[in-house]
Design a protein around this nucleic acid. Structure first.
Lengths: 339, 339
DNA sequence: TTGTACGCGTTATCAT
DNA sequence: ATGATAACGCGTACAA
């Protein structure tokens, strides 16, 4: 900018005034300055500007896994929203690891991000302290965090699973396997509650042997399903509370020589982009990914726009049961090995 | 830092020296400083550091669509690699739009990213100028850019499609529909060449009516497939050169009342994470996403580590034909409506 | 309308 | 070993 000022024979203040429109500059000088800007190929240095202004127009976004289609979609929506608003977004994947998450949030804070959207991982204690120390607005997404009292957008997980389970129960299923995540994050907790309540509401027992947990990955779903299918009195249906794990469930069913939905019904949380093109078409609980992403972005953009003192807002969205053909009425089940 | 220096009754230079280990400071002062750091809760400001050092330890990454599973996976791998190296990554999605891409790259450059990985979009002219002006290392990924002579990692697209087409031809297919992307980016061009050459090598004609183009989205694949299936002498197989578009292909086949592979064979570029769990299991050309991401990251990290003068390096990786059950020998095709 | 001077938080240079 | 100070590039009072 100094070079520009010199080339245009004006002061840097005038150049700045012109660029930011913060004061009116005479046409002659404007022309000279703009010419100089072109000649030099001047580009404003956003880093210097950030240091001076105390704002980076950058936000941080952390999710457990970007390859989980749910997060892929939400990240995409959030990215677009902030792109429109002139913000850059720094993306971090915590891989469900607590230390990684802490490091990444610190990294983002050091870089003076103006705000944070986080789908947290693990215990919230450190996140809580970090958030309290740093003076940036934080929006929690997908997963709440006890003690962190801030904006959040989540799903009514309990209700969503309750509905899905009720659907299975109405189909006649009485022994329904349930695969959950190991870590006690709020969605897993709430979904499990939905599972229990649906069974109880139907007067069915909650058999602990039917509940398995895994670490969110495909292989964990595979192992959990193998255990369920090895049970003496194996379940007639399986509900997976996590999207990647249901792939493992399907593979286990295939490897053990069964087929879905003929031998076993399957439903899961989170929709697939192409759920209705391939067979079986999985019955899923679809989250409103578009709305979740947009609301999270709006919540943060609102704080960024200056609305700092409003009390924390929590948005609870509803899931939608997408009934397809991966679940069969129990009475009509035909074993493929039958003669 | 000034506060820390005051609280510890030393100069800022000493604080800096201690933090960065750039000079030895006496145990007494070290203790005082560390105590002050804890008391104040001091965190180093990465922005100020960047301004001074001229490096942000941040890279920019732009892809057309993060929801395309290919890019999802590659982004994930790249993100992990830079995370390990202590870099943050700013993610941008261009949505196949040229202006968006230019804006985003400028945004990233303004923010002084240390390097750029870009899966480019559209004409390379502006990208070329931007890259030339800015003095940051750039790695091209997936898509080359004429006139931009820089590091790159791409697939041998021509060969990959040639192999896939040869497979279909060996199966007895003679009329093979081909769905490509509209924009003339290098992969689309090379894949089309592979299509043509495979037909020619087999002594088959290249019927222009069998080649349709779309704008990379599902709906475009749907429309293109509808057109292909409306042909008087409709193709017995369809190859989609893009992953999202093949979903449209499958939906069109379903909507028109046909089924795959019984009535029509389908193959496509890019593998799905769960290709082998659902039916039909699509035969695909799988890209080595892990290697692509890692190599792109390594190329850039190498430049970042100081190796600026080495001549541009281009890595060409090989695709792998994943033969599943979505393609049938032509002679054995049985129409599902037959009695 | 335009210019001067200062500060944002760091790091590096050079005295001491 | 430690401290004073300049500089990174920008925005902005304040003065002219």
């Amino acid at each position: 900018m100094l070079h520009v000022a010199e080339a245009a024979r004006v002061s840097v203040a005038t150049v700045s005034a012109l660029i930011n429109g913060t004061a009116t500059v005479s046409p002659e000088l404007s022309a000279r300055i703009e010419q100089a800007i072109r000649d030099i190929g001047y580009k404003r240095n956003a880093i210097a500007r950030s240091l001076k202004m105390g704002t980076t127009r950058t936000i941080g976004l952390t999710v457990p896994h970007i390859t989980n289609p749910f997060f892929t979609d939400v990240v995409s929506v959030i990215q677009q929203a902030f792109d429109r608003a002139g913000y850059a977004v720094m993306l971090c994947c915590t891989d469900e690891d607590l230390n990684t998450q802490d490091d990444q949030i610190r990294l983002l804070l050091d870089r003076m991000v103006d705000g944070l959207i986080v789908a947290r991982v693990g215990d919230g204690a450190i996140l809580k302290r970090i958030v309290a120390d740093a003076n940036v607005p934080v929006v929690l997404m997908d997963r709440l965090c006890e003690g962190v009292d801030t904006d959040a957008v989540v799903l009514d997980n309990q209700r969503a699973v309750f509905d899905a389970m009720s659907y299975l129960i109405n189909l006649g299923h009485r022994r329904i396997g349930y695969i959950t995540g190991t870590s006690d994050i709020s969605p897993m907790h709430d979904r499990m509650t939905g599972y229990r309540e649906a069974l109880q509401a139907a007067g069915l027992p909650v058999a602990e042997e039917l509940v398995r947990s895994g670490n969110f990955h495909e292989i964990d779903g595979y192992n959990a399903t193998m255990q369920l299918l090895s049970l003496h009195d194996r379940p007639s249906a399986i509900f997976s509370a996590n999207n990647p794990m249901v792939i493992g469930t399907m593979k286990a069913i295939r490897d053990i020589g069964l087929s879905c939905p003929e031998d076993i019904s399957v439903a899961c949380f989170d929709d697939f982009p192409w759920s209705d093109v391939f067979q079986p078409q999985l019955t899923t609980v679809a989250q409103p990914v578009q709305a979740i992403g947009e609301q999270a972005a709006n919540l943060l953009l609102d704080r960024l726009a200056g609305n700092r003192d409003a009390p924390p807002r929590m948005l609870v969205l509803k899931g939608r049961l997408m009934i397809r053909n991966s679940c069969r009425p129990l009475g009509a089940v035909v074993h493929s090995v039958s003669a």
